[in-house]
Every structure is written in C-alpha cells, then in structure tokens.
C-alpha cells in the first residue's frame, strides 16, 4: 500500500510454495486426515482462489499459510523461507470480521502497528487504510455500530494497514448480503490491483473465485487433494454474463461434480 502511494507500481507481493503439505487432526483419539499432499506454487502478485466443498479443509490450509498452525508433513515456504510462525507480512482476513468490540474502528485498524510498536511513526497509514476501504467518517465508531459490510471493510483496513505482501482471505465475504458482496468483490479487485500484494482467497462460491482470481484451485472432499486448476486470464472488470466466463464456470462445476446443476 505504501509502495503504491509512493508511486511505485512494481509488483512487490511475495511468492508462496506449498510442498506436499499434509495435515491431520486428532479427533476423539482417531487421526483425521484433512489435507493430502497439496503442492502449489503462487507467483508474486498473483491472485489465486482455492475452491472446495465446505468442510474440506480450506480454512486449515489458510491457517497453515498464516503460520497459526504447523503441518503434519510437508513444507510451506514464502520467498524461499519456511513459514514457522505468524508474521505481519502475511495477514489473514477471516470470514468473521472479529473486530475487538472494546476498540473504536480507528484503534482496531491501528492494532497491527501498535503490536509492532510502529504506531507513533506510521500513524498516517491508519487514515489511508480507512480511506481505501471507504470508512473515513467512521473512525470513532464502535464495531457494534457498523453493518456487516462495514465491519468486514474495517477488518480489511486492519489487514492492509500492515502493508502485507501476502493477503490471506478466508471467505471474507461469506457473511455479507448479496448486494454488499458484489460491491465488495469489485473493491477487493481494485485494492489488489492498486496494492499489488499476492492474494490467496478461500471460498466456496464458484462465481466469486472466477471473478476475482487469475487461477482457481479446485479441492476435493476431505482429505482435500488438488482436483483441478482452472486459469482465468480475462481482464478486469469481469462480467458474469460473458460467454467465456460462463464456460469457465461450467468447467469448475464439472470439477466439483455438480455438472447436472447447470
């Protein structure tokens, strides 16, 4: 974001490599395999969507990428270094905005800077981030005073203020009404284009994946395996009615085993 503001439009997102990543949970004493040898290569500034049926382990994958959990087997690397712990360069936007109710919007957005002791020197970034998501007038509001869409925008600002090189989006629009959702999808694309971070989006919405991402990774049922990869090189803004878009959507539904639905 700062790079974009400084007029430097070169791609500065980070790379992400998943090498044979497998993960198991311990469920009532039984090992429950969730991820099965997932390998993936995401390039600098790419927008990749991970699509799969609910409960297939998409969110687990994102927690591994964020460094919140460590995989049972395999390795995750960013810029060639192994991911071992959370890092503010890889920020997650969760399905639930999870703003702290005791903080105003402004201090919620300030969270990352405050945690790293950068609040005093980088204060102006908060205003910039609020402007970027269109919440300038709501700096002093408390989270319970915001609508669902505004809260999710505040959560986005809280992520962007840290100038992430990898933005991890865990169904960030899942709880929004359909109109707000469409508006936010457009905003997400333009934010990504302006700030040039690498984006990893988890969703179970086929259209959303195809509208936003350049590449859609389709996962199988649990334990999740990569089933297919669909590339969408259409320019933005994309239109749902475009024949090529419709064709890609059909293709993705076929990979999900839902071809009869269309």
């Amino acid at each position: 974001m700062v790079a974009a503001m400084a007029g430097d439009h070169s791609v500065r997102g980070s790379t992400l490599t998943l090498r044979e990543v497998s993960h198991r949970f311990n469920f009532e004493g039984q090992p429950l395999p969730v991820l099965d040898r997932i390998s993936l290569q995401v390039g600098r500034g790419e927008f990749v969507a991970i699509l799969g049926p609910s409960g297939c382990g998409k969110s687990t994958l994102l927690r591994l990428v964020a460094g919140l959990d460590t995989p049972t087997a395999g390795a995750l690397l960013t810029e060639g270094r192994e991911i071992e712990a959370p890092d503010p360069s890889r920020v997650v936007v969760f399905q639930d905005p999870t703003l702290y109710p005791w903080r105003t919007v402004w201090s919620n957005v300030a969270l990352g800077l405050e945690a790293r002791g950068l609040l005093r020197t980088h204060r102006e970034r908060i205003e910039d981030a609020l402007r970027l998501v269109g919440l300038t007038g709501f700096a002093n509001a408390y989270p319970h005073q915001l609508s669902g869409g505004m809260a999710q925008r505040a959560a986005l600002a809280r992520a962007l203020v840290n100038d992430p090189t990898l933005l991890i989006l865990d169904e960030p629009l899942g709880q929004l009404d359909s109109l707000t959702r469409i508006a936010m999808q457009t905003e997400l694309v333009s934010l990504w284009q302006r700030s040039s971070f690498t984006a990893l989006l988890v969703t179970h919405d086929v259209e959303e994946a195809l509208l936003l991402a350049g590449r859609v990774i389709v996962l199988s049922d649990r334990p999740a395996r990569i089933k297919a990869e669909v590339v969408n090189s259409q320019p933005y803004p994309r239109h749902r009615g475009n024949p090529h878009f419709v064709k890609l959507r059909r293709e993705v539904f076929e990979h999900l085993g839902l071809e009869d639905a269309w």
Binding site: A66, G67, L68, P86, D87, P88, R90, V91, V92, F94, D96, T98, Y100, L111, G112, E114, A115, R116, R158, N162
Partner: peptide, 17 residues
C-alpha cells in the same frame, strides 16, 4: 475468543501484547 488471539498473532503481537 481464540479468534481474537489469532488476529493479533497474525498482526505480529507479542505474548505481552
């Protein structure tokens, strides 16, 4: 909520924070 901790951890929070 553990999600509160997850958020802060991904934003670079220390134990003290």
């Amino acid at each position: 909520k553990s999600a509160y901790y997850d958020i802060a951890r991904t934003l670079g929070a220390t134990q003290r924070f």
